[in-house]
Structures are given as C-alpha cells and as structure tokens.
Simulated assay, not measured.
Amino acid sequence: MDPNNNKNYQIAYSDPAVSFLTENKNSITMDVLQKNCPDSAAIKIFQELNPTLIVPLLQKNHLSGILFLGERFYFDAETGIDYTEYEKNLVLSIGSLAAIAINNATLIERSSTDMMTQLKLKYFFFNVLTEKLDNAMSEKKPLSVIMFDIDFFKHFNDTYGHECGDYVLKQVAFLIKQNLREEDLASRYGGEEFTVLLNETTKDAAIAVAERIRSCIENHDFVFNNQHMHVTISCGVAVFDHESNPVTIAKQLVNQADQGLYMSKHNGRNRVTYAPPSLVSLDDEESK
C-alpha cells in the first residue's frame, strides 16, 4: 500500500461504504466491501490503496476514520486465509482504541479553538507562550509577540450588521494565518483583537511580519453583500531578549505588545509599533 501524499482520499459521509462499515462494525476485506456496496464511489479510492483488511474506527456508533492494512508478511498458503477471525477481532480492538484517541484529540482541538475564526483561543495561546518563553529563557533565544486590533470595528457592525462583523473577523483571521509560518501560533485574543506568537524571531523579523500582515489586510478587497469595505488593523510588537528584555512571565510580554498596539491607535491607527521594554515595568507586572 503506497498512498499518494498529494492526493485527497476524503470520502463523503453519505457514501454507502461509510454506512456499511458503521453498521457492520467488523473488519472486512475488499471483496466483502465491493459485494455489499457496488454503488460506492469510495470503492475506487479503496482499490488504489490495495488493502488486505479494512478496519472501521468507531466511537459511539460514529465512524471517525478507516484503518487500511497493507500486504501482510505472513500468509497461510494451505488455507488461503489472510487473517483469522481472532486476528480480525484483535485488529478491530486496536481500531477501537485508535477511534477513542481520535475522538479525544478532536475534543481537545474543539475546546481550544475559536469556532468562528478557527484560530486558537486566548487560554491556549498563553499556555503555549509560557512554554515557549521558558525555552527561550533557557536557550537565550528571541521570542516575539504581535497584538492586532481591527480599526473601527464597531463601524462594520453598526453599518452593515453583526453578520458583516463576523465576516470581517473571519477574513482578518484567515489573512493573519496565511502570512505566518506553520510553526507560528495565532489566536483570537478576544473581540476584534488577535495575538501571534513568533518563536525564535528577532525584533526586525517580527516587525516585518506584522507589517506584512497589516499591509495585506489594508490592500485586501473585503466584499460583503456586494459592499466593498476598507479594513485596516493596528499592531503592537514585543520581543523577549535575555539581555535587553528578560521578561519571565508570558503576560508581561503580551502587555508590552498591548502597549505598542495602544501607541499605534494613539498615533493614527493602521500602523505597526514596536514596544520598548520600558513601556511596562517588570517589577510592576510581577507584583500584580
């Protein structure tokens, strides 16, 4: 079995094969699936994978995935049987454990993700930032935080309705994430505010990222119900440095970025401002 990493093997949940695997609740061969689901569009996909056994991953009668077993190393030539009933049941039990693991991972993902923007939630952002900040301190490497706020966001809700406001939030979130590396982390901090964590990123690089995102949003054509809207964001950048800004608490770094954001708002909006460490007293923050 040699899957093509560039190919989408997604199967429609309405496909007959999905219903059969869900109701049958057993490990089956390709022949059995073809016999019972002759009209299934998924058959062609399964055939490309050439499985010797197909195992449904079931969690509370819900099919969360399908496990395909490739060519097995041992084959009983006398009986012509690839898998005994015991082996099929054993694989099915392993599949049940895998289904539970997938379900638990899905629940964790949902609980840490903002459903509207599909970005991480504030608490998840702080958990990751705390961990990355500890690593940055021990390894003496830079770490940057950017805070964004949509300018005059209330105007979109008041003028075009809350559905328009939701559209703007989703589009801004998409554009932010589109301009980040895979290892970066973006979150919806609250309301129309967003935060970004840039691991091992210096001041100049972080400012460049923030400026790229700001410019991208400013030049993006936001269209809602045939209305073209001009959207801008204000940004604040803060950078951990073991010599010039040795913050020890994640909230300190976010507060510095927030102060930079405030300066951007105060100086006309639609701009990026680096927040010098002196903007927030480390002693004051630690005493809160």
Rank of each mutant, 00 (worst) to 15 (best):
M1D: 13
D2F: 06
N5Y: 11
N8W: 02
Y9R: 04
I11Y: 01
I11P: 03
Y13Q: 10
P16D: 02
V18Y: 08
L21S: 05
T22W: 03
E23V: 04
E23C: 04
Q34L: 09
Q34T: 10
K35W: 00
C37M: 02
S40D: 07
I43P: 00
L49A: 01
T52A: 00
I54W: 01
P56M: 04
L57M: 15
L57E: 02
K60I: 06
H62N: 15
F75Y: 15
F75W: 09
E78M: 09
T79W: 14
E85F: 02
V91L: 14
V91G: 09
L97Y: 11
A101C: 12
I102G: 01
I108H: 09
T113R: 06
M115P: 05
M116L: 15
T117R: 01
Q118R: 12
K122S: 10
F126N: 12
V128Y: 03
V128C: 05
L129C: 08
D134P: 03
V145E: 05
I146T: 03
I150R: 00
F153W: 08
T159Y: 04
G161T: 07
G161A: 06
H162A: 11
H162G: 12
D166F: 10
L169N: 04
K170P: 02
F174C: 01
R181Q: 11
G191Q: 09
E193T: 08
E193W: 07
E193H: 07
V196C: 02
N199P: 03
N199I: 10
E200Q: 13
T202Y: 00
K203N: 12
I207K: 12
A208S: 14
C216S: 13
I217D: 01
E218S: 14
F222Y: 05
Q227A: 08
H228V: 06
H230G: 09
I233M: 00
S234I: 03
C235T: 15
A238E: 11
H242Q: 13
P246Y: 05
V247Y: 06
I249A: 10
A250H: 09
A250S: 15
Q252R: 06
V254A: 10
Q256P: 10
Q259R: 13
R269A: 13
Y274I: 11
A275L: 07
S278G: 03
L282C: 07
K288Q: 06
